[in-house]
Amino acid sequence: MDFEKLAQAMGDLDEDTVVEMLEAVMEDGGSEADKAMEACQKGMELVGNLFEEGEYFVGDLIYAGELMTQAVEILTPALVGSDSSGPKTKMILCTVKDDLHDIGKNIVRAMLEAAGFDVVDLGIDVEPEKVVEVAKEQNIKIVALSGVLTLALDSMKDTVDAIRKAGLDCKIIIGGAPVSEEACAAMGADEWAHSPQKTINVCKAWAAELA
């Protein structure tokens, strides 16, 4: 199996080739399923990079996310019990209180999952207390807060404050249209991002530190 070709097909959003190759991988029960999954993850990185470069659009990110979901469904029977299904870094993702937008959050979730994170998606319009509660319960060390409305900055600050006040040792990244370096500093978050790819890179770096 040419896994470089598989990664490229994923990067090209070539659904037919991706599905065909993954089904071929599964013909012997999936002895190379972990390599196929790595290739798909590499393809997702290509997609993220092409988005950063302006070659791909939001629609392409969504398409890639759906393609990755299909890939996971095909490979899952073989991945259960293999190294690839071992412990993953668990993190929280949500859209903050009073903001009902989920487009950016869902794109980031798909890309984080493709990058190997176990994402606890708390949904939209999420109260700070809920984030604190889940972070405590599940001992989560990375929190990503999303928002579209300018007013989301207030809710992000409330959430950051609640996490700090609860004494939780979490790394927090804020993302979405209204965030900025200044907003990040003012609310005491650790990082900020406009693009999904930056969010993924930051979270991967944090996960490596935590490992």
């Binding site: 659904e15 939001v58 629609g59 969504i62 398409y63 996310g65 759906e66 989920d102 487009i103 869902n106």
Partner: peptide, 12 residues
């Protein structure tokens, strides 16, 4: 919803 709408629009 946005994601499924975008996917439906782009999917062959």
């Amino acid at each position: 919803d946005f994601g499924p709408a975008a996917f439906a629009l782009m999917n062959r």
